[in-house]
Computed example of a mutant assay.
Amino acid sequence: MQAFAARARNTLRLFSLEQKVVLFALLFLFVPYPYGGIGAGLAGIFSLGLMAWRRALFARKGFWLVQIWGAVTLLVDAYYYNWYGFWVFAYFLLVIAFGVLVRGCRSDRLACASLVLLAVASFVACAVAAIQVIFDFSDFSDRAASTVTNPNFYGYMCELIVLACVWALLRGLRPRWLFWAAIPVNLLGIWLSGCRSAWLPVGAGVLLLLLLTGRRRVFAVGASIGAAAGAAVLFFPKLMPRASSFDRSRYLRELIWAEAWKIFTQHPVIGGGFLGYQFFSIDAGEAFRVHAHNLPLDMLVNFGIVGMALLCAYCIPAAVRRAKAFRRDPAVALFFAVLLATVIHGVTDVPLLGSQSGPLLMLLVCL
Rank of each mutant, 00 (worst) to 15 (best):
A6T: 15
A6N: 14
N10L: 12
R13F: 07
L14H: 10
S16K: 12
Q19P: 04
L23T: 15
F24N: 03
F28K: 01
F28H: 00
L29Q: 05
F30Q: 02
F30M: 12
V31D: 02
Y35F: 15
G37T: 01
A40C: 04
A40E: 07
L42D: 03
L42S: 02
A43E: 13
L50R: 14
M51K: 14
R54H: 09
R54N: 13
R60S: 09
G62I: 09
G62T: 09
F63M: 12
W64I: 13
L65I: 07
V66P: 00
T73V: 10
L75Y: 10
Y79D: 06
Y79P: 00
Y81R: 09
W83F: 15
G85E: 03
W87E: 11
V88L: 10
V88N: 11
V88E: 12
Y91N: 02
L93Y: 11
L93I: 11
F98W: 04
F98V: 01
L101C: 00
V102N: 09
V102K: 06
R106L: 11
D108E: 13
D108I: 03
L110Q: 05
A111D: 13
C112N: 15
L115H: 12
V120K: 11
V120L: 14
V120I: 15
A121N: 12
V124S: 15
V124F: 12
F135P: 02
D136Q: 14
D142P: 00
T149M: 10
P151Y: 07
N152F: 07
F153D: 03
C158M: 12
C158W: 07
V166L: 11
L170R: 03
W180C: 15
N186P: 04
I190H: 02
L192S: 02
S193F: 06
G194V: 11
A198L: 07
W199E: 01
W199H: 00
W199M: 01
L207E: 04
A220V: 12
A220D: 00
V221C: 09
G222R: 05
I225D: 02
G226Q: 11
A227E: 06
A228L: 11
A228V: 12
V233H: 00
L234T: 11
L234H: 06
F235M: 14
P237D: 10
L239A: 03
M240S: 12
S245R: 14
D247A: 13
R248K: 14
R250H: 08
E254V: 08
W257Y: 01
A258V: 04
K262D: 08
Q266Y: 08
H267S: 00
V269Y: 10
V269Q: 05
G276Y: 08
A284H: 10
E286Y: 08
R289S: 06
R289V: 00
R289Y: 04
R289A: 10
R289W: 07
N294W: 01
D298E: 07
D298K: 04
M299T: 10
L300P: 03
I305N: 00
M308Q: 05
A309Y: 02
L310V: 04
L311T: 03
C312D: 01
A318H: 14
R321D: 14
A323L: 15
R327N: 06
D329V: 09
P330T: 10
A331F: 13
A333S: 14
A333D: 05
A333Q: 09
F336V: 07
T342C: 08
V350G: 00
P351S: 03
Q356L: 06
Q356P: 00
M362I: 13
M362H: 02
L363A: 01
L364E: 06
V365F: 02
